[in-house]
């Protein structure tokens, strides 16, 4: 199974970085409705700087919706979300300030097909942070080297494989120097061979101390890198714990059911 091979290759000891007390994301009693449907119920979550959190759960549990609320791709109707000291309300200035510091990687990459890889990376720094073009390009090339595909800089996204596209997407978010990275099922649309290359990049990112919130089914990744695993079902956070405790000693019966399904063969 893909996770097993990924785990076997992640031959590193658990990466436990220093977690500071500085609070990066605070979600307080957040509720969200899609029309009449109560999709997120009383979500409360605190994420400190340097923490890596994996969110898992069955489809439709609201995990993607929750992290999309953090950078206002979805709006919450009740409760508070505070990102790096700025509260997320309707005010456009707050939203844009938060989006500048929060990077997001999507399941379907969402690269801009009409621009080269290099232009994809430099677009936001040039137009949002007003970085001069040559500096933006330098940073972009460094990041492409970090994700191990510098030779693809002049190509268009359509000419790249899925794994390469996702790595470009990660590099694109990193170009903006974010404080927090959100990952919405980054490897769900990839072949098994490509999953590893993307997970490697994410593990390196974790080792460098990036605050990460990852929605994924890759349990091997959770075991290796996560400080905390959160299980969500039907819009509620059912359980959250350190990976060892979570996988070996699930408390709630729904968690146990989910783990038995996802880890069984």
């Amino acid at each position: 199974m893909s996770e097993q091979s990924a785990v076997n290759d992640l031959n590193k000891p658990s990466v436990k970085m220093e977690i500071t007390d500085e609070v990066m994301i605070q979600i307080i009693a957040m509720h969200k409705w899609f029309g009449q449907f109560h999709v997120l119920k009383d979500i409360s979550l605190t994420v400190n700087k340097g923490e890596r959190i994996v969110v898992c759960g069955p489809s439709g549990s609201g995990k993607s919706t929750m992290i999309r609320c953090i950078n206002r791709l979805e709006e919450h109707q009740q409760g508070q979300i505070i990102v790096d000291g700025t509260e997320l309300i309707g005010d456009l200035k707050h939203i844009e300030a938060i989006r500048r510091d929060v990077g997001m990687v999507f399941q379907h990459f969402n690269l801009f097909p009409h621009l080269t890889v290099l232009d994809n990376l430099t677009l936001a720094p040039i137009w949002v942070r007003k970085t001069p073009r040559h500096i933006a390009e330098e940073t972009a090339m460094k990041l492409l080297e970090r994700v191990k595909i510098p030779e693809q800089a002049r190509k268009f996204p359509g000419q790249l494989s899925g794994g390469q596209q996702q790595r470009v997407a990660i590099a694109r978010s990193l170009c903006m120097n974010p404080k927090i990275m959100l990952f919405d099922e980054p490897t769900s649309a990839l072949d098994p061979e490509m999953i590893k290359e993307v997970l490697d990049v994410m593990v390196e990112l974790a080792e460098e101390g990036m605050t990460m919130l990852v929605v994924t089914h890759e349990m091997g990744f959770a075991k290796t890198v996560a400080n905390r695993v959160i299980f969500m079902d039907f819009g509620e956070i059912i359980e959250q714990n350190e990976p060892e405790e979570f996988f070996n000693n699930p408390q709630h019966e729904r968690t146990q059911l989910f783990l038995s399904q996802i880890l069984a063969h």
Partner: peptide
Amino acid sequence: EAADALGL
């Protein structure tokens, strides 16, 4: 969404 997420 990608454009929004980048802060554009």
